[in-house]
């Protein structure tokens, strides 16, 4: 304790013609068990009421507060100042459209993603309110939930070499989402239909395998494993498509 912390924070308000992108410095005395949630709110309330940033649940559940903290994407709410040096640099997430200062528009990006991968259960069945639920093996339900744990914070996209180079890349979050639906027997899409969504350079074949996505994932979702499985599945699907019919059954 007793440290004085210096925050270098990216500033730019696109709605203010007088504003230009720059860094601002703020200093705060560090308090016990301080997190970036506490520090940023103190800066706003005590030093600069115009500072824009996003928090929502402040408990690591909702994914609202992702930002680049000393060069690394992460959730600000569960970043403790005691784990950081005296000087802390905060930047908004790249890839997503800037709202202002540390705030970015993740909603539009993710909604676009759901539409691209059609992130919902595809079924021709109708819900019958009188019928008992369809049964599911508990172990499978747990596997699906394991991939459903993604909180769409955007860290994996911000840390992705491909996503930064090409705007149309789906990113680990979308590929993981599709892996979730492939596991789910309620989704009746065929392998061919999945292939049409992700069997491209914008999808699984655009991944360079740098795996920063998994390194920065605050929920520690096994993205490396999921991307590997998906690549193998889609590669087989691709090969199957060019083979003559009599060979296809071998896969």
């Amino acid at each position: 304790m007793g440290r004085t912390l210096t925050f270098n924070i990216f500033r730019y308000n696109p709605a203010d013609p007088a504003s230009s992108p720059h860094m601002d410095r703020f200093t705060l005395d560090e308090t016990e068990r301080m997190t970036l949630f506490i520090a940023l709110n103190r800066i706003r309330e005590e030093l600069d009421p115009s500072l824009m940033f996003d928090f929502c649940c402040r408990a690591g559940i909702c994914g609202a507060c992702a930002m680049v903290i000393n060069g690394r994407p992460g959730l600000a709410c569960h970043t403790k100042t005691k784990d950081l040096p005296d000087e802390i640099t905060l930047m908004p997430l790249p890839v997503f459209k800037l709202v202002g200062d540390l705030s970015v528009d993740t909603g539009t990006w993710f909604r676009g993603m759901y539409q691209k991968v059609e992130s919902w259960v595809h079924t021709d069945k109708l819900f019958d309110p009188k019928a008992q639920e369809e049964r599911m093996d508990n172990a499978l339900a747990e596997q699906i939930y394991e991939l459903d744990r993604c909180i769409e914070c955007g860290c994996c996209v911000a840390a992705c070499g491909t996503a930064i180079m090409r705007e149309d890349f789906l990113g680990a979050v979308a590929l993981n989402r599709l892996a979730r639906f492939i596991l789910d027997p309620r989704d009746q899409r065929t392998e061919k239909e999945y292939f049409e969504v992700v069997g491209t350079d914008e999808g699984i074949f655009g991944c360079m395998g740098l795996l920063a996505c998994e390194d920065v994932c605050p929920k520690e979702i096994p993205l490396q494993e999921q991307l590997g499985k998906l690549r193998r599945k889609m590669a087989f699907a691709a090969v199957k498509n060019i083979l003559p019919k009599f060979l296809k059954k071998d896969f």
Binding site: M136, A141, E142, Y145, D184
Partner: peptide
């Protein structure tokens, strides 16, 4: 109970009886 089953139908991975 109907609402829970509807959520299951739409894709919620409820924990199931073992």
């Amino acid at each position: 109970p109907i609402a829970m089953r509807q959520m299951a139908f739409w894709g919620v991975p409820w924990n199931r009886v073992v």
